[in-house]
């Protein structure tokens, strides 16, 4: 996984609540999606007009916001399905940090598997950040520093956010969960050995042919 340590860039305000995973990755791309080009369709219902042209009112289509690396969204962002394509797409658009009052749980977890940092902040703070991000033509720079858990706004205000130490380390060092757990496989073998005597029916599954 790629490391996420410090980033600087524009933040796109998207003040709409409950943006679900069907908006982020429309279902028609689910069967063919891959991590490299799914972003071409990300936010499609908001991003394009019905004739296929770009919607000039969508924030990421506006001059100055096209290269946003932060997204400041309404609450419950990423609710809905488990599709990880939602995070791949956002990442593919260049976004590395999403800020909202709350997130869909699965989306929130998926972010950390893809070097994207979701930050939860109180509604009032999110509103203030949106205001700062909307202030200009979009060339206001925000800064993120994962090591110090801080977000610095264009006006120089510094906000500290919460992140658990394990997730912080994984982002900073680009660590991958699978490799880490596999190193500790002996613990799983020990667990299964003991559990098999307590709950044999879990392991001795019948079969249907």
């Amino acid at each position: 996984m790629e490391k996420l340590q410090q980033i600087q860039g524009v933040a796109a305000p998207l003040p709409r609540a409950n943006i679900d995973t069907d908006i982020i990755t429309p279902m028609k791309y689910l069967t063919s999606a891959n991590s490299k080009d799914i972003h071409e369709h990300t936010f499609e219902p908001l991003r394009f007009l019905s004739d296929g042209r770009e919607n000039p009112d969508f924030i990421l289509n506006k001059p100055g916001y096209r290269d946003s690396v932060f997204l400041i969204a309404g609450r419950n962002f990423g609710c809905g399905s488990s599709r990880e394509t939602a995070v791949w797409g956002i990442r593919g658009l260049g976004i590395r940090c999403v800020i909202a009052e709350s997130f869909g749980d699965i989306f929130f977890n998926n972010c950390f598997q893809n070097s994207v940092l979701p930050i939860r902040l109180p509604a009032a703070t999110v509103a203030e950040l949106m205001a700062e991000a909307s202030d200009d033509q979009g060339n206001m720079q925000f800064q993120l520093d994962v090591a110090s858990r801080t977000l610095t706004t264009p006006s120089g205000r510094t906000i500290t956010f919460d992140i658990t130490p394990d997730r912080q380390t994984s982002l900073l060092e680009g660590l991958d969960d699978v490799g880490q757990t596999m190193k500790e496989d002996a613990a799983t073998t020990a667990f299964q050995g003991k559990d098999r005597t307590e709950r044999p029916w879990i392991y001795d599954l019948g079969t249907i042919d």
């Binding site: 399905s81 488990s82 599709r83 990880e84 995070v87 699965i106 977890n109 998926n110 598997q113 893809n114 969960d177 699978v178 757990t181």
Partner: peptide, 9 residues
Amino acid sequence: GIGSSELVH
């Protein structure tokens, strides 16, 4: 429900 990275895990 889990995402695809978790599924690989």
